[in-house]
Design a protein around this nucleic acid. Structure first.
Length: 212
DNA sequence: CACCAGGCAAGTA
DNA sequence: TACTTGCATGGT
C-alpha cells in the first residue's frame, strides 16, 4: 500500500512546522479542522510573538482564543493549548528537552492525561514533533481500510494502529510518510462512494480481506 | 445552499 | 459500554 501511494502521489514531506513546539501546537489546532485554517492561526501566534511555552502559559485564554480564531473551535482549543503548556510547565519545567527524555510509552500516557489531547493528537506529537515510531490513525485511515475491506466499521483506534505498527518496521520516516500519504489519499478518494475506480489502492493485491 | 476539514470530551441511558 | 451532542471557522 505504501509504495503504491508513494508512487502515485510522491513524497508528502510532513510535518509543515519549523519547531517542535509549532508542530505540537499545530497538532492540537488541526483537530477536525482544515490545515489551511491552522496555518493562519499559527501565523497569528508567530506574528504576535506568542509561540513560546512560557508565553502561552501566561496569556489569558481570551487573548489566545482571539489569535487562533481562524482554526475554529477557538475557545475550546485555547483551553486545550493552555492545558498542554501547563502540563509542560508543571511536569517538565517548560522544557521540551526534558519532555524528550521520557520513554515513548510513558510519555503517551502522560499526554493522554491532558484534557484536550486524545490518541491521534498524542501520536501526532510523538511522531511528528518527538520522532517516535508510532503510527497516527485518523478518520481517513479508518475510512480507507474499511472501504477496502481490511477492517470492520466499528474497529477501534488501537486495533487500527496495531495493523500498522505490528506489521511494519518501526521507522519514523516510514510512519511519517505513510500517514501523510493516507491523508492525501483520503482527500482525493473514498469520500462519497464506497470504492473509487481510479484509486491507486485498487491495483493493490491485498494480503487479506475481511469476509463480506 | 450543503458539506467538509489531519478530534475530543461531556452528557445521557 | 454505546450513542449523541457541542464546539466554529473558512474553503469548495
Amino acid at each position: 500500500m505504501y509504495h503504491l501511494l508513494r508512487d502515485h502521489f510522491g513524497a508528502q514531506n510532513w510535518w509543515p512546522g519549523e519547531t517542535r513546539l509549532e508542530v505540537m501546537v499545530g497538532a492540537i489546532l488541526t483537530q477536525n479542522t482544515n490545515w489551511g485554517n491552522v496555518e493562519k492561526a499559527i501565523h497569528n501566534l508567530k506574528e504576535r510573538g506568542l509561540l513560546a511555552i512560557e508565553t502561552l502559559h501566561t496569556i489569558s485564554p481570551e487573548i489566545l482564543a482571539r489569535e487562533i480564531r481562524p482554526a475554529g473551535y477557538y475557545n475550546i482549543k485555547a483551553k486545550r493549548l493552555k492545558n498542554f503548556v501547563r502540563f509542560l510547565m508543571e511536569h517538565y519545567a517548560g522544557s521540551l528537552e526534558n519532555l524528550d527524555d521520557e520513554e515513548t510509552e510513558y510519555l503517551r500516557e502522560q499526554l493522554l492525561a491532558v484534557n484536550g489531547i486524545g490518541q491521534e493528537t498524542a501520536d501526532s506529537i510523538l511522531l511528528y514533533a518527538l520522532e517516535r515510531p508510532l503510527f497516527v490513525v485518523d478518520a481517513y485511515t479508518h475510512r480507507i481500510l474499511f472501504r477496502h475491506g481490511m477492517a470492520e466499521e466499528q474497529v477501534d483506534y488501537q486495533d487500527l494502529q496495531g495493523m500498522f505498527v505490528d506489521n511494519l518496521p518501526a521507522e519514523v520516516d516510514l510512519f511519517n510518510e505513510f500517514h501523510a500519504l493516507i491523508v492525501r489519499t483520503g482527500k482525493a478518494y473514498c469520500r462519497t462512494s464506497p470504492r473509487c475506480s481510479d484509486c491507486p489502492l485498487e491495483q493493490w493485491e491485498q494480503p487479506f480481506l475481511l469476509q463480506e
